[in-house]
Design a protein around this nucleic acid. Structure first.
Lengths: 242, 242
DNA sequence: AAGTGGTCTAGACCACCGT
DNA sequence: CGGTGGTCTAGACCACTTG
């Protein structure tokens, strides 16, 4: 994985940025980099394009490639890189204790909305799994998920008390790698207030959407109602995103 | 702009997908596409990579390239493509009337937090601009923005009653093309409730972050408090994002 | 074994920026 | 004008999937 040339160059350039190795925040031009790394210019361009996409550097035609000053000042913000999915299944808890309480587990016919979102035909069945996620004992997220039984026929209540995505990776050799999510907010319902310890004027954040396997199969439709103090979604938007 | 070969191929393939031209949702292999479009395989790969990044197709090494079924079923969701920034300045109002009410306009020394976010030195000054955005007469967003005076010395109250980004594009030939934003939610404050017509238990969505110019200069630090029924942020997450 | 996407090369030519 | 990044080519070789 990490033995790809362009990945090694990306990491090396990130390190050199962090070590403040570039004067005026200006990187050497692509032809020089190609020379010094002993690779083709195309490979340098590939590495720099990815760094630009991540917001680490800015490229300006005719002038050169420059370090994003914010990457130096506030590098922690950029750690979201490639880890946004973990937010949901394997909650990124930075060392804190994450536990799951199973609230509901059943198999039902897929409703029209679920059929739509999971690309199912009529008469197909799904698991309906409702879980409460706690971090350090504090309830944070009420998560309701729907998974086609045909995609994980061996699922069990014991399994869903832990990471479902890890399970299907290990046991079914399927991997979730894409998702399409909507982020919204709403006043909390009675149930939210009870489960998440909210008062009536405190809201929930809502992340709702579909998770896909590598091959494009919709795997799960999930709605997460998040304690408002714990919803913090960071995103880097790049309009030059080809 | 649109006369680039890879862009034309992207558009053409999207049209062919929409016209249901591919059997089994499977695209021709890259070598055939290269032949039929009379371009190199590299250019085909470039087009397909971008489509994969956008979630329009899925590529599977060894088997082929496939249409994302959700792209067909629910194409409207994918219209977010490359238009997320517009959410903020030029609100994407789909034909509805968007107006701005100026609440506050002054020049002040940059606070420590603003200095940090806009990469300013001490003793630098910023515009502080507070605006209420209405759509079809309904108040939707309270937006507080900070812009270094040195980046837009000619700004005036009249200007900020309209799109600031359009202004600096037209007059200063600077273009905002990137942003780093956080999305959160909070109970509404008294002021939120008054300005946005909310009751006490109704929350606001918060989008807060920095907008950058093409060359990486931080241009504006902005916090938007959004009527909860109007915050809907759609995002496609791809863990294989190189 | 055949088919398919992934990585990498070496180089031509173009478009934009600054001196 | 020289320097810089952007686009595109033509092809070699590798890695994975499927029959």
């Amino acid at each position: 994985m990490a033995d790809l040339i362009y990945r090694k160059i990306i990491n090396d350039i990130k390190n050199r940025i962090f070590d403040n190795e570039f004067q005026n925040n200006k990187l050497p031009d692509e032809r020089s980099l190609s020379e010094s790394y002993q690779v083709s210019r195309s490979t340098i361009k590939r590495a720099l394009n990815i760094l630009a996409q991540q917001g680490v550097v800015f490229k300006k035609r005719g002038s050169g490639t420059f370090v994003n000053p914010l990457y130096l000042k506030n590098q922690s913000l950029f750690q979201y890189e490639g880890n946004n999915l973990g937010v949901t299944d394997n909650i990124s808890t930075a060392g804190q204790e994450s536990t799951i309480k199973l609230l509901d587990y059943q198999v039902t016919p897929a409703s029209a909305e679920i059929q739509q979102n999971l690309f199912l035909n009529e008469n197909e069945f799904v698991y309906q799994i409702k879980r409460l996620r706690l971090i350090d004992g504090k309830p944070i997220i009420i998560e309701t998920g729907y998974i086609p039984i045909k995609l994980a026929p061996e699922l069990s209540p014991d399994t869903v008390r832990e990471s479902i995505f890890n399970y299907i990776d290990d046991k079914e050799h399927k991997r979730v790698s894409k998702s399409f999510m909507s982020i919204m907010t709403e006043p909390s319902t009675k149930e939210d207030q009870e489960l998440l310890n909210l008062s009536t004027n405190e809201p929930v954040g809502i992340m709702s959407g579909t998770f896909f396997l590598d091959d494009g199969t919709p795997f799960e439709f999930s709605t997460m109602r998040v304690h408002y103090q714990y919803l913090n979604y960071n995103t880097f938007i790049n309009l030059n995103a080809d």
